[in-house]
Design a protein around this nucleic acid. Sequence first.
DNA 1: ACTAACTGATACTAAATTGGTATCAGAAAT
DNA 2: ATTTCTGATACCAATTTAGTATCAGTTAGT
Lengths: 148, 148
Amino acid sequence: MKVLNKHTDYAVRALIALGMKPGSRISAKTLSEEQGIPYQFLRRILQELIRNGLVSSKEGAGGGVALARDPDEIRVRDVIEIFQGSVQVSECMFRKQLCSNRANCVLRHEIMRIERMVNDEFAKVTVGKLIADLKRVEEARAGVQVQE
Amino acid sequence: MKVLNKHTDYAVRALIALGMKPGSRISAKTLSEEQGIPYQFLRRILQELIRNGLVSSKEGAGGGVALARDPDEIRVRDVIEIFQGSVQVSECMFRKQLCSNRANCVLRHEIMRIERMVNDEFAKVTVGKLIADLKRVEEARAGVQVQE
DNA sequence: ACTAACTGATACTAAATTGGTATCAGAAAT
DNA sequence: ATTTCTGATACCAATTTAGTATCAGTTAGT
Ligand code: FES
Ligand code: FES
């Protein structure tokens, strides 16, 4: 059972890649080659990110895409929301047997609690944070290589 | 994006229903009617629960199913595991660009953290707990009705 | 012994979702 | 003009999900 699908996965990777080259526009083609993401698929993902204001674009030759916001203001949760809809643990089904009314459905209660937790966690993870982590790891690795 | 599918959902509801009538065997047919779960679908779900030792069964006339364990020892997480496999936030894809080696992949790191959290939360919720909550709510409601 | 009420096992299906491709139109740079 | 890009959208195959159907075997009651 995978929580994140390819859309979300690729979107996050693309956002990280964009965030690591701040200021510069990158074409979808270049991005797709660098990240090994199928071109047409990435195109559609980027267009969705653009529509939702996470990424800005410029048409025509020399055009491309760039982050439209501070990486710290882009939450993985936002990306999930765009491509998979908000995280729901289970749909409500208003079962007469188990819950006479929705307000006091036990299942729903438990489920909503976990739902909130998951959402909060994904909201804590921003593209900025991932980039920072990534850079830290890369520097550490570079350090090790020098010592070898 | 739903985290729990119908298999898990129905399974949990069935387990709750069984747990509320301790000792007695119930036929899949009765259960399906009481809970409004499609009969053949419920049958398959029950068989899976039986195979995994959460439910015991008796064949033939007068047969049926019953919980095979203490409701407090049946975790929603176990049910998820049976029908949806263990909760994974994202599959690992060992992308050369983002993670030179798997041990220090940032994405993976964050994702595993959330994965663990979700799994732990679902492990905390047992059928016994849900039944207790349900009974509490029902008693409260009965009390209100008396006062009316 | 017969029958009705059950479970075990498993094959099948329709519809939705997922992951990916292809195409065409239009914008900007050279 | 031509090349390089995005915008929009239609299409597609494979998988998953949710549900159905069937047949064989077991047990209880008569
Ligand atoms: S399942 Fe929706 S109110 Fe209980
Ligand atoms: S995605 Fe698997 S190691 Fe990074």
